[in-house]
């Protein structure tokens, strides 16, 4: 009882990276609190997941396996989670901030009347004193996230309601296998106990999933463009440099909002988090909403006309000037020197 639950998201029977990242974080929190780490998988044809979650330290694996549960639909998944949480009373529940997690977790939190913090960048255990009542709380989950367009960092707590719920984006937490894998106790869920016919009113008529096309997350080099690139056409130059360096093109939210490139390339709090060997930021001012997704890059080159751009604080090399002038030179001198 009062354990930590991680919702396991699966894609075609394979566990999503974000769920493994949450298990790694969950293991750390469970050790700190002295409680168990429980994984909850809902879908169809889920055999074999126990090995995977055991490698990431889960003590228990709940499996709700039924034809109606795959592909994901909000209501049946919510019903199962709320049913199990109602009985098990977890103190913490973690979800990936994926399209599924961001559809599911709010529904669950509303049903249970517990709070939910979206897109946390850090989760830490700590104490809290209510400023008004003076009441003290021990070992709460600090849910830390950028807020207000990334201009502030907020620490959120849920003093009186359980579970304390948070979503975390893929790539934000580290994924790490435990030294000695656990053999999780498997608990098979009686799906019909929780899912009513009224939970099946939304019907999936058609579904078309594309292969993961753009994968900037695992690219060793990222050439990222911001609003300062000025146009979609100018982004072509970024692609030229990225192709040459064996990298991928990324973008800030402002550039994506302006239509310069696809959302799949967006780096930052509401996009992808990356840790490349080299990050070249072109015409990116460097608001925290963006830098939250790239500040663990090994090396950063910032190209910006503004000598005081915030991105420069993260940069190993600051080039003050127009990216449209600098990038062709980088292409030229890379070609000249790489022979």
């Amino acid at each position: 009882m009062n354990n930590i639950f991680v919702y396991i998201e699966t894609e075609g029977g394979k566990v999503a990276d974000v769920s493994l990242e949450l298990l790694t974080k969950g293991r750390e929190l469970a050790d700190r609190l002295g409680c168990k780490l429980e994984a909850l998988a809902i879908g169809h044809n889920l055999a074999g997941l126990d090995k995977t979650v055991g490698m990431y330290g889960a003590d228990t694996l709940w499996v709700a396996d039924d034809r109606e549960l795959e592909p994901y639909r909000t209501l049946p998944h919510t019903a199962i989670i709320c049913g199990i949480f109602g009985e098990e009373k977890p103190q913490i529940a973690l979800f990936g901030a994926t399209p599924v997690g961001r559809d599911l977790a709010p529904r669950v939190s509303s049903t249970l009347g517990s709070g939910l913090t979206a897109d946390c960048t850090s989760l830490v255990i700590g104490d809290y004193t209510d400023a008004k009542s003076g009441k003290e709380y021990k070992d709460l989950l600090y849910q830390i996230r950028p807020a207000f367009g990334g201009n502030i960092i907020a620490t959120i707590v849920n003093p009186d309601h359980r579970p304390q719920m948070a979503t975390v984006r893929e790539g934000v937490m580290r994924k790490e296998e435990v030294k000695s894998p656990t053999t999780p106790e498997i608990k098979n869920v009686d799906v019909r106990k929780y899912v009513k016919d009224t939970d099946l009113v939304v019907k999936i008529i058609d579904r078309h999933i594309e292969e993961r096309g753009i994968d900037i997350k695992n690219s060793p080099v990222i050439v990222a463009g911001g609003y300062g690139m000025g146009s979609k056409e100018n982004f072509a130059l970024l692609h030229e440099l990225a192709d040459l360096l064996g990298g991928e093109v990324g973008a800030s939210r402002a550039a994506v909002d302006a239509g310069f490139t696809d959302h799949a390339r967006q780096i930052g709090q509401t996009g992808v988090t990356v840790r490349p060997k080299l990050y070249i930021a072109c015409g990116i001012s460097g608001q925290i909403q963006h830098t939250a997704g790239m500040d663990q890059s090994s090396m950063v080159i910032a190209i910006n006309t503004d000598p005081d751009a915030p991105i420069n604080k993260f940069a190993d090399f600051v080039i003050t000037g127009d990216a449209m002038e600098v990038i062709p030179k980088m292409i030229k001198y890379y070609k000249q020197n790489s022979k």
């Binding site: 709070g115 809290y128 201009n151 707590v157 849920n158």
Partner: peptide, 10 residues
């Protein structure tokens, strides 16, 4: 249910 414990300028 959620309370803001702390706000920090970046």
């Amino acid at each position: 249910p959620t309370k803001v414990k702390q706000i920090e300028n970046v």
